[in-house]
Design a protein around this nucleic acid. Sequence first.
DNA 1: CAGAGTTAGTAAATGTATTAACTATATGAG
DNA 2: CTCATATAGTTAATACATTTACTAACTCTG
Lengths: 181, 181
Amino acid sequence: MAADEDSGDAAELDFWSFVDLAKRRLADEYGFRHQLATELLLTLNRAANIVTYDLEASVHRPRGRSWSGFRLLFVTWLAGPLEAKKAAELTGMSRAAVSNLAKTQVADGLLERMPAERDGRSVLLSLTERGRQEMVELFAEQNEREYEWATVLTEAEQRILVMLLDKLVTNRDQFDVRGRN
Amino acid sequence: MAADEDSGDAAELDFWSFVDLAKRRLADEYGFRHQLATELLLTLNRAANIVTYDLEASVHRPRGRSWSGFRLLFVTWLAGPLEAKKAAELTGMSRAAVSNLAKTQVADGLLERMPAERDGRSVLLSLTERGRQEMVELFAEQNEREYEWATVLTEAEQRILVMLLDKLVTNRDQFDVRGRN
DNA sequence: CAGAGTTAGTAAATGTATTAACTATATGAG
DNA sequence: CTCATATAGTTAATACATTTACTAACTCTG
């Protein structure tokens, strides 16, 4: 029995061999049946975390920014001016998170916030001139890094991956997915 | 020109039409060339966030737990006893994050922490009996929910998705990925 | 028109995540 | 054997994320 098949010796495990160990033990010792589902979601979570961390560490944090801050600026850059609640929908953040991030970015001079014309409850977010310039520079770097990641896969593989991820999350009517807001 | 091709009117955008708008404007107005790469990473990030949030909201938070707490218990359950640094590697968290989460879970009676035998710097993490029981119950629910997500795709599609995600993040030698620790 | 119910944004409380700084321990070169 | 360097874990500071509670504004029904 190989060393890493024995749970007493985790020293040689890496993520991939841990996933194999997890599948085996969940089925053999605990009777859980949906091994491929577990592997799928472990891998999805891991891949997204690795990529996001890399983008944040190599592009955003050196500029004193954060990944979340970038995402808010990104949707405001391309779809703005827009209501804060719409920004929350497009980024997938809660309204409170958008409110807090926007506060920081208004103070930093990258965003501006205006009362909406027809709804006294709403605010509209838009980039300042400085925010637009910053996004052009920042996204130049981000896009190159995105390209480095993506071209690990062939173009056909990239398209298939996008299609499968789309399918995974758009067929949510099949069951009651818990969403934000 | 359709309403949602005009950036002044974000009201009708959803995530998918936003991605289309983003690709178009990044190419046409700003000259950024790697549209498929942007789409890929936007979709990856979004899919992982949707799934993770749903699992946390429907399985973990009702039990007073968190997604991150679950992930630490999960690797300790299946690969433990193990060093805290190995738990950090397998979960993809920083060592500080593992230290902080473990502190809470030791206090909750789910984990225990022992000095390692041969290295005075290390601690070994393992589940308590109560922690093991909790993981069996919790994972029963988690695994059913994972299955509901996964079976949105056919089994062949699930395998392809896992394979593509694996490939995306294991071919990291091609460039200097920024990782944790 | 009044009032009940809903919605938008914000603040507060709480938990998670990071890095830097620190202490303690281990390792290896000279 | 000494000492420089590296490593493991923890703590603190800071930023991000959530939900809850609240206020203000909007909508719809009777």
